[in-house]
């Protein structure tokens, strides 16, 4: 199953030149060497349904890139292609390329396990393992052998919890199950779990959609802090959140990016009519 996208990739010709019509900066359609990650002609289909139609996007380091758009537009499919989570779906077929530091992650020689340690992910619904708080965070460093001894492991766990802004709340009860925390705490635990393996990039798929406004605010602050150390890609339904958090924004519509660029610019001066309707709240 994991081989299919790779095979089709080897066989597919690499298309040259600009693909998108709605270009803002004139840089689209090719891979910017300054980008941390970049996709080129990324096409994803589930069985016969095409979810992404030749998407190209550059994602820059230490920035928050927000992906917005109506439901079913392909944002989640796109973000799941960046760490090859779509590999787990057997009917999923992927064409095109995704570059991480200039290397194609769909290259047959590329190790998915290694890739996912470099590109972490936080999901829509908090999904702590049914283990203790400590074990949740320690899970990644343990399987990857990142800590030489217990002391170092402890350091990594506490450090990650601190960076996720959770340490103060849980430091006295590291052995209670992760599932006993509140929704917002669970999500921060999941962020700590993701950063414990020291990724370069963190993907967040609507991380606040299951949380109340206060917990959401907490996570948003955290994202802004984390930006200094990580490259962050976030899918969100909330226009305000995208505007508050992101440096760059990409607007997805029916499997394509119809507009992207600096957040402020897209919000203040949308070029595409569909984007304008959406960001100004006329549809969506």
């Amino acid at each position: 199953m994991e081989n299919n996208p790779i095979e089709s990739l080897i066989n597919s010709p690499i298309t040259e030149g600009p693909i998108m019509e709605d270009v803002r900066h004139g840089e689209e359609g090719y891979v910017d060497m300054k980008a941390k990650m970049a996709t080129k002609d990324l096409t994803v289909s589930y069985a016969k349904v095409q979810a992404l139609k030749g998407v190209s996007l550059n994602i820059y380091p230490n920035e928050v890139t927000a992906l917005i758009g109506p439901s079913g537009c392909g944002k989640s499919t796109f973000i799941r292609s960046l760490n090859r989570m779509n590999d787990t779906i057997s009917v999923c077929n992927i064409e095109g390329q995704v570059f991480l530091d200039g290397e194609n992650i769909y290259d047959p020689a590329r190790d998915v396990v290694q890739l996912r340690t470099q590109v972490g992910m936080v999901f829509q619904k908090p999904n702590p393992f049914p283990k203790s708080i400590f074990e949740n965070v320690a899970y990644g460093p343990k399987i990857h052998g990142l800590a030489a001894d217990d002391e170092e492991l402890h350091g990594i766990v506490l450090g990650s919890l601190e960076r996720a802004g959770l340490l103060d709340e849980v430091k006295d009860r590291l052995n209670v199950p992760g599932t006993s925390l509140s929704g917002g705490q669970q999500q921060r635990l999941c962020i700590a779990r993701a950063i414990a393996v020291r990724p370069d990039i963190i993907l967040m798929d609507e991380p606040c959609s299951a949380l109340d406004p206060i917990a959401t605010k907490r996570i948003e602050e955290l994202i802004t802090e984390l930006k200094a150390e990580y490259t962050i890609v976030i899918v969100t339904h909330s226009m305000q959140q995208a505007r508050r958090l992101s440096d760059k924004i990409a607007y997805f519509h029916l499997g394509s990016i119809v507009e992207h660029g600096e957040t402020a610019e897209v919000f203040e001066n949308p070029v595409d009519e569909r984007t304008a309707d959406y960001v100004l709240g006329r549809i969506g």
Binding site: M85, T88, T117, G120, N127, F129, Y139, I143, A194, V197
Partner: peptide, 25 residues
Amino acid sequence: TSLKEGALAVGSTRSEAIKKVIIPA
């Protein structure tokens, strides 16, 4: 499924996800 995805997303191999997360759960 979210538990399995959580395990895979931190870089587990399938068997690690099965042995350490799915079967214990």
